[in-house]
Design a protein around this nucleic acid. Structure first.
Length: 266
DNA sequence: AACCCTGCCAACCGCCTCATG
DNA sequence: ACATGAGGCGGTTGGCAGGGT
């Protein structure tokens, strides 16, 4: 629906928060909880809109916020989650205790994105960057692989792709739920402490760049060949499960679905 | 010293979703 | 079924700090 009218109200202060304003907000929330954000500014004696108060609290004043540099593990977690979730910063933040979506978003835009580009990866697809001319021979080889398929084959491929996409959608829907819900309840007791998942041990993320490594994974960076396209039996060439699902894709998906990460959340 | 450029990050804006009446 | 308001989210911006010329 329409946007909240609170920000349209004139006379409300904008811009950086003063220590006095912070104190007022902290004291009020400690005493009464935030309750209705819209009502809070008046009750707390602040000349701010509710949105501004909520943002200040959730991104800066909350006591459980972890400040300081991101660790290597956190970097890797962000990278891996971004590969599946895209710019769903709040969803990514639920897997990084003490970090806010705003902080992760800023960290991505100022550090990780550049780091990936420098390593030769496309920050949106998490794949090696290619230009049309250098990849032309591979595209031609790929085209040769699929020349003159029958209508029945094409129909079967489309059918299979649709099935795979539907299953992926189910998993992504599940992943987007906060970890405090059924996901954590279904974990073994030792893993219920909101521990970051060990993505590097997961087949699902085996193809993605390791930021802790000095160089990108050479096997992953290797140009596509006919055998690399058709041979889906190796972990290093799992490739994009969606785009390759027509070429032994069912096997990729069976491996993916057998992966501990998906077993855990399924 | 003055200016410019770049990086960083807190905060804002506008849209969306969901709950409620 | 629809309208409305509150909260949440992601994209963007503004201003500060630091480094270079």
């Amino acid at each position: 629906m329409g946007r909240s009218p609170c920000c349209d109200e004139s006379g409300l202060k904008k811009g950086p928060w003063t220590p006095e304003e912070d104190d007022k907000l902290i004291n009020y929330i400690h005493k009464h909880g935030h309750g209705s954000w819209r009502a809070l500014p008046k009750l707390a004696g602040l000349n701010r809109c509710g949105k501004s108060c909520r943002l200040r609290w959730t991104n800066y004043l909350r006591p459980d916020i972890k400040r300081g540099k991101f660790s290597q593990e956190e970097e890797q977690t962000i990278l891996n989650l971004h590969a599946i979730l895209g710019n769903k910063w709040s969803a990514i933040a639920t897997h990084l205790p003490g970090r806010t979506d705003n902080e992760i978003k800023n960290f991505w835009n100022t550090h990780l994105k550049k780091k990936l580009i420098q390593m030769g990866f496309d920050p949106m697809t998490h794949r090696p960057r290619t230009d049309i001319f250098s990849s032309l021979p591979h595209l031609i080889a790929l085209a040769n692989l699929i020349e003159n398929p029958s209508w029945e084959d094409q129909a079967m491929r489309i059918h299979n792709d649709a099935l795979h996409m539907a299953r992926l959608n189910n998993y992504l829907t599940y992943i987007l739920q906060p970890p405090s819900s059924d996901l954590l309840l279904n974990l073994p007791p030792q893993q219920q402490q909101h521990q970051p998942y060990n993505f590097q041990d997961s087949l699902a993320f085996a193809h993605m760049p390791d930021l802790t490594a000095a160089e990108p994974d050479a096997s992953w960076m290797a140009p596509l060949t006919e055998t690399s396209i058709t041979n889906t039996n190796t972990n290093t060439n799992t490739g994009d499960a969606c785009s390759t699902s027509s070429y032994g894709g069912a096997q990729i998906w069976s491996e993916l679905l057998d992966d501990p990460f998906f077993q855990e959340i399924a």
